Amino acid sequence: MRTGEREESVRTRVLRARLRHVYWIGGGSGAGKSTIARRVAALHGLRVYSTDEVMSDHAGRSTPEDAPWLSRFKAMSMDERWVNRSPETMLDTFHWYRGEGFGLIVEDLLRAPAGTGVVAEGFRLLPRLVKPLLAEPGHAVWLLPAPEFRRAVFDDRGWEIPRRTGDPERARHNLLERDRMFTDRLREETGRLGLPAVEVGTGMDEDELVERVARAFGF
């Protein structure tokens, strides 16, 4: 093993040990990650760390050098972001999907008190980035919403993004298609890496999903 690889291996082992109290819930948009994280945390005496809630803070702490895709995204108009580009391009160039800012998530978790378990949740928790940090294989699960479930959530929320564009219907279509492809990517990645995933459909109630996530965590 070369020196750089040895140092990286040592650093990863240290991070894994320091984050052993963290339980991770990732997944596609609209899968219910925040709700399930809050309920599981309340049932088992854990704190919740929402990666969505710190996105603005992380964007402000990022530089063009360490987050070039975020920098390009911030320079675009709403139509450039959501209307004028294909869903495939939106997927491939979205900064959070490329893992930018994940190091800031780890920094936040390391700064928090380690005495109490934490449920970290959000779509930014990509399987390939989380797996090296898992002290236990069962400390992470990804929620994969079916297309009809995601559409129902989208319509219920009345998302603000499409309304702020010049073509809300096109923006809505693009967002739903991008999120479908992101969920497919998560499904492939969790399967390839041997990580737990739960398919979320319209026939699954919230209590059942809470139970399945808690069971995946070994509670």
Rank of each mutant, 00 (worst) to 15 (best):
D179S: 05
E177T: 14
E160N: 10
V141S: 04
K131C: 09
R98P: 00
E100I: 11
L133T: 04
L175I: 15
L110H: 06
T93F: 00
V141T: 04
Y97L: 07
W96E: 08
R157N: 01
G122E: 10
I161D: 12
L144C: 10
G99H: 12
K131Q: 15
H95I: 01
N84G: 13
A171D: 09
R164H: 14
L175K: 06
R151V: 12
M78D: 13
F182P: 02
E136C: 00
P132D: 11
E169L: 07
P137E: 05
P145H: 15
I161E: 12
S77L: 06
E177G: 05
R85G: 00
F102Q: 03
D79E: 11
E177A: 11
A120M: 09
R85N: 04
G158F: 02
P137T: 09
F149G: 00
P132F: 09
P87S: 12
A152N: 04
D155Y: 11
A152W: 07
K131I: 02
D155T: 08
D156N: 04
R98W: 01
R98S: 03
H173S: 08
R111K: 13
D179W: 15
L134F: 10
P87K: 09
I105E: 02
N84K: 15
A135K: 05
F182A: 15
L110D: 03
R124F: 01
D79V: 07
R98L: 15
N174D: 13
A146R: 15
W96R: 10
F94Q: 02
H95R: 05
H95D: 01
F149C: 02
F123D: 02
G117P: 12
D179R: 04
N84Q: 14
M78T: 07
W96L: 14
R172S: 15
A114M: 06
R81V: 02
L126S: 02
L125P: 00
A171Y: 02
H173C: 00
G115Y: 09
G99W: 08
G115Q: 14
E136G: 01
W96G: 00
L129F: 15
L125T: 03
G103A: 01
E121L: 05
S77E: 09
R81K: 15
V119F: 05
D92C: 01
W142C: 02
L91Q: 13
F123L: 13
D92L: 04
G166T: 13
L143F: 12
L176S: 10
E160T: 13
H95A: 09
A135H: 14
L134P: 04
A171L: 00
G101A: 14
H173M: 08
R157M: 09
A146G: 08
R151F: 08
V130A: 08
V83C: 10
L91I: 12
G138T: 01
G122H: 11
V141M: 03
F182I: 11
L109Y: 08
R180C: 05
G166E: 07
R163F: 02
S86M: 04
T89H: 08
I161Q: 11
G103W: 03
E88Q: 12
R151Y: 07
E148K: 09
D155F: 09
L176Y: 10
T89Q: 08
F102V: 03
H139V: 00
R151T: 11
H95Y: 15
T93P: 00
G117C: 10
L134Y: 06
P147D: 05
R111E: 14
E100L: 11
P87I: 07
P132Y: 11
H95W: 15
R163A: 13
R157H: 07
T165P: 02
G101M: 15
